[in-house]
Amino acid sequence: MDEIIVADGLVKQFDAVMAVADISFCVRRGEMLGFLGPNGAGKTTTINMLTGLARPDAGAIHIAGVDCVANPKAAQYHIGVVPDESNLYPELTGFENLCFCAALYGMPKQVRQQRARELLTTFGLVKASDRKFGGYSKGMKRKLTIAAGIIHRPKILFLDEPTMGLDVSGARQLRQLIADLHGAGTTIFLTTHYIEEAERLCDRVAFIVSGRIVKTGSIPELLAPIQGKHGMLLVCDGHDTEATQTLAEAFPEMTFTRQDKDTLRVEADSPILVGPLARSLEAHHVEILEARRVRPSLEDVFVDITGIEAKAMSDKR
């Protein structure tokens, strides 16, 4: 596969804050790259530089072979952008918004109207096509914003936190739409703080922390180091620090992490048996209410590499 986005040595500083510190990466044609990191890690600044909304202080960007730093307007023909907040025109209808966005790319009237109708059908918005965008629900707004991003059939689509703030069913629908777009051959650059979302959708993932890319790889490559690990979540009644300490001493081959007041996470290189753990806890008058096997995930890799808890990342957001 050839490389459709190439970023080399990108640097961006705002006053004393180093937003992006010398990052390099590439995205292959037809690939979906997940850009994962906590708030303030430099994700949006990177997208802004790649899309021509910000000028890098140093470094080079090539989009579909076009030098984006020297000629951002030429590069913008190849890209579609879906920002983290829906930014269409509230006073225009869904149909008018799509037609307007198509016109910005020079599409003739007949072509843009046909394309707008086609996208409204694909995104299940036909009934709302004559309603003003300002009256749409959050999920409908996100869908129409994505439709606007692909109205000109771009080779590359930048999605900035596409499911943020959506309810479960809205987010699921949107993920399916993104997967379909990817399946149709669109190259997608996805930033998200939902690690599960990246794991489910992306071919490769780059972790960015404090303006630096700390790890890049395909999902299997990233999961490889923890592939043999076993995990279990124990929900206990009356669990305390002393009990955790006792378990750690009794089972040195395992690691115990208290996730919250009642939940304990156990990890080991070999299968974990509940019986010995239950007996040990019973001695401290702690009862196991629930034991659930957990599959090692990208979240564990992220925590291992960055030291940032995924939950803390979401909460911060």
Binding site: G52, L53, K73, Q76
Partner: peptide, 14 residues
């Protein structure tokens, strides 16, 4: 303010 101007800045128009 509502960021719709960004849409214009992202368009391949001088």
């Amino acid at each position: 303010k509502n960021r719709s101007f960004e849409r214009l800045l992202l368009a391949p128009v001088s």
